[in-house]
Design a protein around this nucleic acid. Structure first.
Lengths: 233, 233
DNA sequence: ACTAATTTTTAGACTACCCTAAACTTTTTC
DNA sequence: GAAAAAGTTTAGGGTAGTCTAAAAATTAGT
C-alpha cells in the first residue's frame, strides 16, 4: 500500500527495448514468408523514422546478432531475431483476441492498443493469457498466431481478387488492418467466416459482384478484394 | 498482415511518459492520505535513481504543473497531478485484479507485471476492463481502487498490531507487497477474508498469538502484524 | 548560535534514440 | 558504359533521462 519501487534501469534486465522489438517485428513483417532482404527505406517508412536513424539501429541490432546486416545490402533476421520477432507477433495477436473476445472491442479498434501491450515482457503472462483464451490459432483479423515455440499455424488462403466467377468461398482474413478499411467492411456486412459467391467479375477494373451469405449482393472494387483472404468451400 | 506502422514519436500524442507517470504515482504513495511533502531523497529511493536525477525530473513536472515544487522544500501533487496519479493507481490495481481473478496468478506474482501494464494509455481499455471485472472496489491485496473519476473507496482498517487481546477480526489487506512477504503469508495460511481471534499479546516484543478461522493457532511477530490490515467483526 | 552533518541542487557528462545535411553506393537510363 | 537518379551511410547535433562530483541550503548538536 505504501512503497512502490520502480526498477527499470537497474533491478530488471530489460531484455530488448520497445524500439528494438518494433524493428524486429517490422523486419519480419516486411521480409515476407521467404525472409527476403528488407531495405533501409522500407524500414524508415515502417518505423515512421528517417533512413539515417534506421541505419543507426541496424548497426545496433547487428551488434546484438539479431539481424544479418551488410551495408547497402538490406537486412534479414538471424534465427535469434526471428524467434524474438515471432514472440512479439504472438503477443500482439493474443492481446487482439483478448480485446475482441473478452473485452468486446471491435476488430477495427484493437490494433493500436495491442501495439502497446505486445511489449509487456512477462512470458508467464503470455502463456496464462493464451490458456485463458483457449490457445487461439488465429487473431480477429484472421492472422495466424505462432505457438510458444514460434510455429506459425499454416493457412493457405487466396486473395478474393484471385478467385474466379462462380466460385464459392469463405472469408478467412484481411491483409489491411487500418481502422477505415475495417469499418468499411463492417458497414458492408463483411466479417470473418461469411460466405461469398462470386456472381460476376469485371476484367477491365478487376471489380466483382459477390453475394454474401446467400442474401445481399455487393459490388467490390479490386482495392477491397485484394485485401480479403478467402478459402474455397 | 503486412504493414505495421509504429507511431510513437509523431502521430500519437504521448500524454505523459512512463517515467513521468511513475514519479506521480510514487509521489502520491509517499505523500500519504494528507498529501504531505515528499523529499527528494525519498523519491530517489522510490524511483531507484539518484537525488540529482530526481531534482531534474521535479523541475520538469513542476514546469508541466503536475507538482508543487519549491527548492529544498519537498513536493506535493497539484490537482492535475493528483488526478493523473489516481488514474495510474486505478490502472495498476485493475490489472492486478485481472491477473489474479481472470488469469489465476498468485497475489505474490502480480505486482511487477501490473507495474508495466499500468502505463498502457487507452482510457477505453481501462473502462472495458473494469466492466469485465465487475467494477471491483478493492485489489487482490485489499487496496482500494479509485473509480473513473478518482474517488477512492473508503475503508478504515486497523493494523493487526493495534488490535487488543480477545478481539475477533477479519483480514482485509496488507501494507507490504513484496513477494517474500506475501509468500510467507501464503505458507502461514493467511489470506484476505480469513478470521482471526487474538488469543494473546506480548507487550515486550508486540508479538501475538492468533487463531485463524477458528482452527489453527499462529504466532505473529510485530514485523508481520503491523503489515496486516483488519476489521473488527 | 555556530559548527557539523545531512539533504538538495548545480554542473558537466553519458546513452538511447531521433534528426538534417552531406557524402557515398548502387541502380537505372540512354 | 557513363551520367543521372535513387537509395544508403556518415557526420554532427538534439532531447529525455540517467549518472558523479562538487557546491549550496537546511537541519541538528552541543
Amino acid at each position: 500500500m505504501r512503497y512502490c519501487y520502480l526498477h527499470r534501469s537497474k533491478p530488471y534486465i530489460m531484455p530488448h527495448s520497445f524500439t528494438e522489438e518494433n524493428y524486429l517485428k517490422i523486419i519480419h513483417n516486411l521480409s515476407g514468408p521467404e525472409g527476403t532482404e528488407v531495405s533501409t527505406n522500407a524500414l524508415a517508412e515502417g518505423t515512421a523514422t528517417r533512413a539515417a536513424s534506421v541505419t543507426d539501429m541496424l548497426k545496433k541490432l547487428a551488434e546484438k546478432d539479431l539481424i544479418n546486416y551488410k551495408k547497402y545490402q538490406g537486412v534479414t533476421l538471424t534465427p535469434t531475431g526471428e524467434k524474438l520477432a515471432l514472440k512479439i507477433i504472438r503477443k500482439h495477436r493474443l492481446w487482439e483476441v483478448f480485446l475482441v473476445e473478452t473485452l468486446g472491442f471491435g476488430w477495427d479498434e484493437v490494433h493500436d492498443i495491442a501495439e502497446e501491450l505486445e511489449h509487456i515482457p512477462s512470458d508467464r503472462l503470455m502463456e496464462r493469457l493464451a490458456a485463458f483464451l483457449g490457445h487461439p490459432r488465429f487473431d480477429p483479423h484472421g492472422d495466424p498466431i505462432p505457438d510458444a515455440k514460434g510455429n506459425m499455424p499454416t493457412a493457405d488462403y487466396l486473395k478474393l481478387s484471385e478467385v474466379e466467377e462462380g466460385d464459392k468461398v469463405r472469408m478467412m482474413g484481411v491483409l489491411e488492418h487500418t481502422t477505415p478499411f475495417l469499418q468499411h467492411l463492417d458497414r458492408s456486412g463483411l466479417m470473418l467466416g461469411c460466405e461469398m459467391e462470386i456472381k460476376e467479375t469485371n476484367d477491365y477494373d478487376k471489380s466483382a459482384l459477390v453475394q454474401i451469405d446467400g442474401v445481399k449482393t455487393l459490388f467490390l472494387s479490386q482495392e477491397i478484394s485484394k485485401n480479403l483472404l478467402v478459402q474455397r468451400v
